[in-house]
Write a protein that binds this DNA or RNA. Sequence first.
DNA 1: TGCTTGTGTTGCATATTATGCAACATGTTG
DNA 2: CAACATGTTGCATAATATGCAACACAAGCA
Lengths: 251, 251
Amino acid sequence: MKSIEKAVSALQLMVESGGELRVGDVSRHLKVNRSTASRLLASLAGGGLIEQDPLTQRYGPGILTVQLAAGFHRKFDVVEQAQKDMEALARETRHTAWLGVLSGAEVVVLKTVRGSQPIQFAVEPGHRLPAHAAAMGKALLSLKPDPEIRELFEGTLAATTGQTLHSVDDLLRELAQTRLRGYAISNQELFDGVKAVSIALTERHKGTSIAVSVSYPLFALPDGDDQPIIDALLGFGRHFGARIGDTRWTR
Amino acid sequence: MKSIEKAVSALQLMVESGGELRVGDVSRHLKVNRSTASRLLASLAGGGLIEQDPLTQRYGPGILTVQLAAGFHRKFDVVEQAQKDMEALARETRHTAWLGVLSGAEVVVLKTVRGSQPIQFAVEPGHRLPAHAAAMGKALLSLKPDPEIRELFEGTLAATTGQTLHSVDDLLRELAQTRLRGYAISNQELFDGVKAVSIALTERHKGTSIAVSVSYPLFALPDGDDQPIIDALLGFGRHFGARIGDTRWTR
DNA sequence: TGCTTGTGTTGCATATTATGCAACATGTTG
DNA sequence: CAACATGTTGCATAATATGCAACACAAGCA
């Protein structure tokens, strides 16, 4: 059903463009005539999925997206439940706490809670990070069997810093270590000068998995001792994991 | 572009069904063959707009909806800004504070802040209310010229209680009063035994309008004196309206 | 177990419809 | 004012969405 696939591509484009689309943008990126793009957007707008600003003629997300997202959050209501525990985690570590889920080979950030340190790294909810470079990504990938990982990452892995892993074999080795270690580490593999640790939790009944991480700039730990942060994260895992019925913490 | 319109209809159906859809549901409600419904949903799922639970085969909202909704909220970032003032409003009145926007002839609830009274009326964000029966709806409709209202409400108005207005003429009279009064009232027109008052605010630069209301059960005011609540709401309007550049409060 | 029923997915021929072209309308820039 | 960019509409043609079966699978039941 090609026209629907094009429509979804247009929506992805809308996200990438920061929530605003013009007919010309769709025409160019989807390589269709302007007329087609115009009709495509008009159809999406008809049902309220997107809305056209009467003045600028630009299209933006519609109310229907909010209603759909509410349904998504109901499925992942752990996100709401995690709020208080994440605040405690951010307070204890003084650094940003993250929560995300896997989407293909990327991690989608669903929530961030900033710590008390003056300089903090954080992104807006909805942002995507390459799973093989982010600590949350590794934590979530470590739940999957190796063959599935290979399928997901065919080809080379995109590098964002000099530390980024760039072969699937390296990634698989790293995931094996992660499983033994019990938590994932990203040492400047996503942002230079920033380290992060993460654990993944699975809701027993729903089967959905989330990752929670803490990120911290290296200069904030002159002695390089991040054990307190890891302990805090594992403490969070015990508390919150037990609450949502994660198989790892409840027996 | 009929196939896209069908896809959007399916998404609306998903919202109405509480965030879960099966192929059969789409087939029935859209009156298409199961094969068509199956391919339609598969196409939507391809781009991540919706997701299929591998176990139950049911479709639910995908991560893309969250990202799109984030874009929507950026457009209506008043919703975030209003949080603290709404909390103050709910605290002061001890009743639920609501925030919503107009979508056709309905109000979409974007946020509710519950008051301290033991019994509270509130709905989940994303819920739709008939605009002609809700106080927020009347407040928002009162911004529009009469002819536009007539166009929006052709036919009779659906009644949810015995008090609901059921002719467009009644509604127009009510809206005229609302404009003079400065705030809208819904006296048990939406829920029996529940009254609500509301004001609408318009962001000067963006031109987007929101409504904020306070709802309260009649038994909570034995003497029927709701002037304190109205005063609190108007106070909110002055504070928050000035902050977002509403033309009514800033001169 | 064997039978029935309900449901989701795929191959195929046909008819619906999505597409590019062109033209027009409108707004923007130099 | 000219030149350009952009959004929208009518129309003929090519692309594709659709229903019909048939199949696969699971659940309920005698």
